[in-house]
């Protein structure tokens, strides 16, 4: 790379772009007269990122097609790992849980977060104090937050105590040990922690919508709902794109909460792809199989990120 960096051919290859750049700037930047740092200052960063991100990801992708267990030799086994994944009900369940948690948490955090942001948007005098309170869980570690909720969902915990005092004994249950409720309990924890994040992004988006446009719509006879749907929502579409994309990418990687709340149980009812990657690769030593699961997760994350970008970026006005 460094050999071609200062060669003259570069100027010849892309003459248009370079001329345009020079015209735009106040003066051409010539080496020697005035230069900004040395190019090799970027080298440690480039090497580190190529090594830790690109090489590691590529090697991990290659492992996915082997039967390596971390020690000794390995064989290329083609798609066998993936066939095994799709024949194992636990892995299918983990895939379903991952998608459920990601999609449901994005929907709930964004609807609630947007609702809070709209509620706090104008006139509220204590909005900054309220914003600090609602955002507080975001800065905490997901692991610590999950332990608080593990107690709340405990059989002897506050939820069951409240239900008992309300005379709803039939609803009392060990929430995290109940296969049909455990995944919903995990969802509650994620939504509680992430809503403040969506709210803050929407508050920033709403602050940029001029009140005059809303007033004009109101004078034209638009109701509260019409004003929201046709005026406010189109104006904050960039905020929607950011909040949903980040939410889905993080939602697909849910790990800490599961490890703290249920450890994947009861009977695998709350396993996600991330917890399965950890268990297969690092607890059981099946590096090849774990890498195949990780590759699957990586592909799903990429697909969702691309879909999300397409949907929110190119939606026409009437949406």
């Amino acid at each position: 790379m460094s050999a071609t960096m200062y060669s003259e051919t570069e100027v010849v290859i892309v003459p248009k772009r370079r001329r345009r750049e020079q015209r735009q700037g106040t003066r051409p930047r010539r080496a020697g007269v005035l230069s900004f740092g040395h190019w090799w200052w970027a080298l440690p960063g480039i090497v580190l990122v190529i090594g830790i991100h690109y090489v590691a990801t590529a090697v991990g992708g290659a492992y996915a097609f082997t039967d390596w267990t971390g020690i000794g030799a390995f064989h290329w086994i083609g798609l066998d790992n993936f066939v095994a994944i799709f024949q194992d009900p636990t892995k299918i369940g983990a895939l379903g849980n991952t998608l459920f948690l990601a999609i449901a948490s994005v929907l709930l955090t964004n609807v609630i977060g947007l609702g809070l942001a709209l509620g706090l948007n104008r006139l509220i005098k204590t909005r900054y104090a309220l914003r600090v309170l609602f955002f507080m869980p975001v800065v905490l570690s997901p692991l610590a937050v999950s332990y608080i909720w593990k107690f709340i969902f405990d059989f002897n915990g506050p939820i069951n105590a409240i239900l008992n005092s309300l005379g709803l004994q039939s609803w009392v249950r060990p929430w995290l040990a109940d296969p049909s409720f455990a995944i919903w309990a995990v969802l509650v924890v994620i939504v509680w922690q992430q809503t403040g994040f969506a709210m803050v992004i929407y508050m920033a988006g709403l602050a940029a919508v001029p009140p005059e446009i809303e007033e004009a719509a109101a004078i034209d006879g638009a109701g509260l709902w019409q004003r929201f749907w046709h005026v406010v929502l189109p104006a904050i579409r960039p905020a929607v794109a950011i909040a949903t994309t980040l939410g889905i990418v993080n939602g697909l990687r849910i790990f800490d909460q599961i490890m703290a709340l249920t450890n994947g149980g009861p009977a695998g009812a709350t396993e996600t792809l991330a917890t399965q990657v950890y268990k297969q690769a690092f607890s059981l030593g099946n590096f090849g199989y774990g890498a195949a699961l990780a590759l699957l997760l990586a592909l799903i994350i990429l697909i969702f990120a691309v879909i999300q970008q397409r949907l929110t970026a190119s939606r026409p006005e009437e949406a």
Binding site: T57, G60, A291
Partner: peptide
């Protein structure tokens, strides 16, 4: 190169990085 690395999922790299 850096922009793409932000989007690159980290899970896949952890196994080789660990080794």
């Amino acid at each position: 190169l850096f922009l793409v690395a932000i989007v690159l999922p980290t899970q896949l790299g952890t196994v080789p990085l660990y080794i």
